[in-house]
């Protein structure tokens, strides 16, 4: 039977993932692993788990196994956590998997970027079930309609791995994947203090998030969860301001869905100017404070 289960790690993911559920064109249910998701997302059934989902992937995947049997499609928004858990689930199911779907051609045909977004591949699924992670930016927002039946379920997560420590930095700024404005910086920001003083204060002034290149993260200028790109976060804000970012393929792979990309770079030949909607050739240490002044 063709049916989709959307796995949402929290209620926001259920909202942001609902458009995928609607576009796939199959009857679908949603499992919300923490929090309460709304009943008007277009799903037939809403499963509410009695457990939160901080468990290691092996426990989560085996806990989900009983519930996902009977579904032809199992999907979640792309994140490090969903890739950790869903690929393991696909392994347990001996299932096909499509990572980072950006478009649905049919329930067995999906488009996804490969080689850091340099090429788009159309992937045909040859056998069901299929496990999918998808980037929500490709699917727009969901039509709110209907009222799904809610069911509480009990999942048992038994993990052989033990969580010894967690550092969730978070803070007061919006999440990178949700932010409307992102101020992002690269290697020239020098150190964590400079990054925070120059870009952090700008982000706070405009209510945005901060992002960084791999070079900035590798040199300790920014925290790892702020890395944007092929192997970091994929973002889609209304405004992405990249200051002191060269524009490598790997970085650009993470920001292509931004509505407006602004580049501030002192090298007029920096590759980022090929992609930016608006480019300013300037020293970021002068341009950024000047922008802040203008916006006061």
């Amino acid at each position: 039977m063709s049916r989709l289960l959307l796995i949402a790690f929290d209620a926001t993911e259920a909202e942001n993932g609902a458009a995928f559920g609607q576009k796939l064109g199959l009857p679908w249910d949603v499992l919300c692993l923490s929090g309460d998701c709304s009943a008007d997302l277009g799903a037939e059934k809403t499963f509410k788990s009695d457990r939160t989902c901080d468990d290691p992937a092996d426990g989560l995947a085996s806990g989900l196994l009983a519930l996902v049997r009977g579904y032809s499609h199992i999907a979640a928004i792309s994140s490090m956590r969903s890739k950790d858990v869903l690929a393991r689930l696909a392994g347990l199911l001996n299932a096909a998997m499509v990572t980072d779907a950006i478009a649905i051609e049919s329930p067995s045909l999906f488009k996804r970027p490969i080689i850091a977004g340099a090429v788009i591949a159309t992937v045909e699924v040859l056998a069901e079930p299929v496990v999918i992670t998808f980037r929500p930016a490709g699917f727009g927002s969901a039509n709110r309609a209907g009222s799904s039946a809610s069911e509480s379920i009990s999942l048992s997560f038994e993990s052989t791995a033990k969580v010894v420590a967690t550092t969730a930095r978070g803070g007061s700024r919006p999440d990178l994947t949700q932010a409307k404005i992102i101020i992002s910086g690269g290697r020239p920001l020098r150190d964590a203090e400079t990054f925070e003083r120059v870009l952090g204060s700008f982000a706070d002034q405009v209510g945005g998030a901060v992002g960084a290149t791999r070079a900035a993260v590798d040199s300790g200028i920014a925290a790892n969860e702020l890395q944007v790109g092929q192997t970091g976060k994929i973002v889609a804000p209304d405004l992405y301001i990249a200051a002191g970012v060269s524009g490598s393929t790997q970085h650009m792979a993470g920001i292509k869905d931004s509505k407006i990309i602004v580049a501030i770079n002192k090298d007029p030949d920096a590759p980022i100017f090929e992609f930016a909607d608006l480019g300013l050739v300037a020293d970021l240490f002068e341009a950024v404070p000047a922008m802040q002044e203008k916006l006061k």
Binding site: T166, A168, N224
Partner: peptide
Amino acid sequence: TDSGEETL
């Protein structure tokens, strides 16, 4: 992790 680091 998506939000920082964890030790397993």
